[in-house]
Design a protein around this nucleic acid. Structure first.
Lengths: 210, 210
DNA sequence: TGACAATGAATGAACGTTCATTCATCTTCC
DNA sequence: GGAAGATGAATGAACGTTCATTCATTGTCA
């Protein structure tokens, strides 16, 4: 029952397996991915996966955990940007568009689909989301651009809207034809998202003369 | 009722099966739902499903088709509302919140997840989305509230933002604990969505004095 | 009308396949 | 030698799909 100790070599194996699982899950989805697929992608045997993870669901859960850690690192980076808009750009470029955009989008949509029927995954995902939203809410509350935006919205309201659009664009991303390049996809995604940010954080006075 | 018996009974059976499939897909997802689950939910035998659908994928496709028809009916109803905000309310209340909200949300998220790896489903889903977006773009372009909103956004831009938020809130919906009632879920979803609409379609002049 | 033929909707056991998981076995390294 | 790491064939359950069979309904004809 007990998991093996997570020392450094174990951690390497674990992340090797998780890396392979991400590729497979994004390509085929959780339930169409077999343990053999993952072992093949990782270049190891099937049985070895069970040395590091109790079962398939534990692999899924571990990936949600890893996703949370990645998001926290991004929040850290975003906090250091000089302006709110730049913070948001760092956050949502990294979250949705960096590296292999389609991979991440497909994984996240699948994660939410899984969350809709697996309460444990739902808890994990909610946790990830709440951590990220709290971070952005905080970012807005501290930024001068976040004050007096002239639309009577609290930092919480603003964060909610920002995340809703980000999730929505991520969902749209999985519909894009495979021919579209990562760069095109990224551009399209940011275009819409940026329009919202500008709308939410317009410099004072700009509207009156628009 | 005056239709030829074979046709009407065929159509009845098909929608009976699709109804059962929606319940199963929303509860367990496409790939965790067995044909036996669907036949059990519909109260018929497994073999009978294959008289009405070529295979499991054809059931999924037929559901996407049905979804498109439902959305077109909603667009029709929305067009008749007296104001743009009321049109949007009809559209997105019906689309995301009516009847069994969690059922529809879970189905749609799963549909996008499936679309991310099944080009045929992606085409169907893109088609549904483009039809709906064109309808809303048109609605905005015709409405007086859609003109001169003071933010330099085209009806296309506005529709894109509206749909992004709608998809994002739908995704959030599947994370809600099961204890939450349909009414609560619906309220939360509409709160955020309405904030965007007001932001996008503020009456002229309101901003200058905010 | 009543006897018989024809139909095809409906059934569910059976088939071949795939999958998650196990474990006897082999390898590596101290 | 032996402990831990790694293997992959074996297992049995579950799956999508098929098809021989049943039987209520409909059509035909004396």
């Amino acid at each position: 029952m007990s998991q093996p100790q997570i020392d450094s070599s174990n951690a390497d194996r674990r992340s090797q397996i998780l890396e392979a699982a991400l590729v497979c899950f994004a390509k085929r989805g959780f339930h169409q991915t077999s343990m053999h697929d993952i072992s093949g992608e990782a270049g190891i045997s099937v049985g070895l996966i069970y040395r590091y993870f109790e079962n398939k669901e534990a692999v899924i859960s571990a990936m949600a955990d890893r996703h949370k850690e990645e998001i926290q690192q991004m929040l850290e980076r975003a906090r250091q940007a000089p302006s709110l808009l730049e913070s948001l750009e760092i956050l949502f470029t990294a979250h949705c568009c960096e590296n292999e955009p389609r991979l991440i989008s497909a994984f996240v949509v699948d994660l939410y689909a899984e969350a809709s029927r697996n309460p444990h995954v739902a808890d994990l995902t909610r946790d990830v989301l709440e951590t990220a939203m709290a971070g952005v809410r905080d970012l807005i509350a501290r930024a001068p651009e976040g004050q007096n935006t002239g639309n009577n919205l609290t930092p919480g309201d603003l964060a909610e809207l920002i995340f809703a659009v980000a999730r929505g664009m991520l969902m749209l991303d999985v519909l894009r034809p495979h021919e579209m390049t990562a760069a095109e996809r990224r551009t399209r995604q940011l275009e819409v998202t940026r329009r919202l940010w500008r709308l939410l954080f317009k410099p004072e006075g700009e509207l009156a003369y628009a």
